[in-house]
Design a protein around this nucleic acid. Sequence first.
DNA 1: TACAAAAAGTGCGCGCACGCAAGTTTGCGT
DNA 2: ACGCAAACTTGCGTGCGCGCACTTTTTGTA
Lengths: 222, 222
Amino acid sequence: MTAGRTGLREQKKQATRQALREAALRLALERGPDNVRVDDIADAAGVSPRTYNNYFSSREQAIVAAVTAERESRVAAAIAARPDGVRLADAVVDAIVEQYTDPDAQDGDALLLITTRPALREAFVDAAAAIEHPLTDAIAGRLGDAGRDTARVLAASVAAAVRVALDRWVGGTAAAPPVAGGLVVPSGSLPDLLRAALAALAPALDAAERRAASARHDPGRI
Amino acid sequence: MTAGRTGLREQKKQATRQALREAALRLALERGPDNVRVDDIADAAGVSPRTYNNYFSSREQAIVAAVTAERESRVAAAIAARPDGVRLADAVVDAIVEQYTDPDAQDGDALLLITTRPALREAFVDAAAAIEHPLTDAIAGRLGDAGRDTARVLAASVAAAVRVALDRWVGGTAAAPPVAGGLVVPSGSLPDLLRAALAALAPALDAAERRAASARHDPGRI
DNA sequence: TACAAAAAGTGCGCGCACGCAAGTTTGCGT
DNA sequence: ACGCAAACTTGCGTGCGCGCACTTTTTGTA
C-alpha cells in the first residue's frame, strides 16, 4: 500500500541514509559531537561529503535522525491502524504517545548526548515538524477530502504541540523565569507532557470530526 | 508598561537593526537578491559583516524582516487591547488579521520579490513563528497564570495555523497535487485564508477560556 | 539485449554562519 | 565625577551548505 517505489534505487538510497545517520551518531558518541567533521561522517558511510549534504542539511540533523528515524511515518500508520469508531482525538494522541515511547528510541547514551548539547536539543525538537505531512494525510483520511484544509491546520497544530512538549522535556530553550507564586515541575515524563499538551487541542479535533460526520449526512451543506 | 530597557544602548540597537533590514531590502530590490552579498548589506548599514550576523542569522531573514518588522509584538499588543469581554478566539483572530492587513506591509514591490523567490518565500513564512512567544504572553494574560502551559500550546498552534495560511497564500511549498474531483482555488485573499485556518482552532480556544473562567470561580479545582 | 532518459553521486568553488578573543561603548553604583 | 562591570562591536579563522556542471548508475522501452 504505502510501498512507493520499491526498486533497487530506492533500496540503496535508504541504505545510504541509514549508514549516514548511524555513522553520525556513532562518531558523535565516540569523540563528542564537536570533534566530528562532516567529512568523517561521509567517509564512515562510504560516500562523498557532497552526497552527505544531499541527505542532511545540517550535521545535527544527521545525528538526531539516528534516534528520530522513521517516526513520522509510523505515527501516520498508527493513526490509520486505529478502528474507525475511535474518537479522532484519542487516535491521534495515543498514536503519538505510542511512537514517542518506542523502546528503540530510548538509546540512553544517545538521548543523554542530545539533551546535553543545545544545538542537538534544538535539532531534536525541530525534528518533530516532520510529522506534519504524514499527519495531514492521516487526519484527512478520517475527515474526508472535504476537510483537507482543516486537516492541514490540525496536523500543523498537533506538530506544534508535540514540539512544545519535547521542548519542555529536554529542559526548555532557556532557564525558566522564576515564577512568583507557583511551584514549577521541572520536566516530568514525556508521555505525560505529550498528553497534557495535546489535551488543549482535543476540542478542535472533536469539532472537526463532528463537522465531517454531519457533512457526510448532508453533503449539500458547506 | 511594555517599555523594557529604554536606554541609549537599546535605541542604537534598534537603529542598527532597522538600518540593516532596510539596506537589505533596498539592495535586493535594486540588484536582485542573488547579487547582494552580506558584506554589501553591512557596508550600507555602516557596520561590520560580523555584526550583521549578530542581528540576522541568514540573508533571507534580513530582507524579509523589512516587511515583517515588529509584527509579532503588535499582534500581542492588539490582543491585549481588546476588551476583556470579547471571546478569546475572536480577539486572537481579529488581532492577527488586523496586523497582517497593515497597509504598511503591502510594499507591493517587496512582496512581489519575496513571493517570487523560493528562498525568500520560505523565510517569509517561517517568520510567522516569531509571534509564538508574544502570543503566549497575551493568551496567558487572558487565561490566568494557571493556564500558562495551555497558553503556550495554543500560541504555538495559532502560529502554526498562520504559517499554513501564509504558505498557501504565497503559493505553497510545491505545486498542488491534481485533485480528482474538486475545484481548487489557487490562493484567495490573505484575510480569508487566515480566518479559515484559525477557525479550526476556535473550539480549542473556547474550551481553554471556559476552563479558565470556571477555575476562577472554583480555585480549588485543578 | 541494447539504448535513451531519469536519477543519484561527485568534485569544485563560493559565500556564509558563527566561535573566539580582543577592543570599545554604555550603564550604574559610590 | 569616577571607575568598574556588563553589553555590544569587530577581525580572524574554520567548517559548512549548496549551486553548478559532469560522471556513473538504474530504469523503462524497443
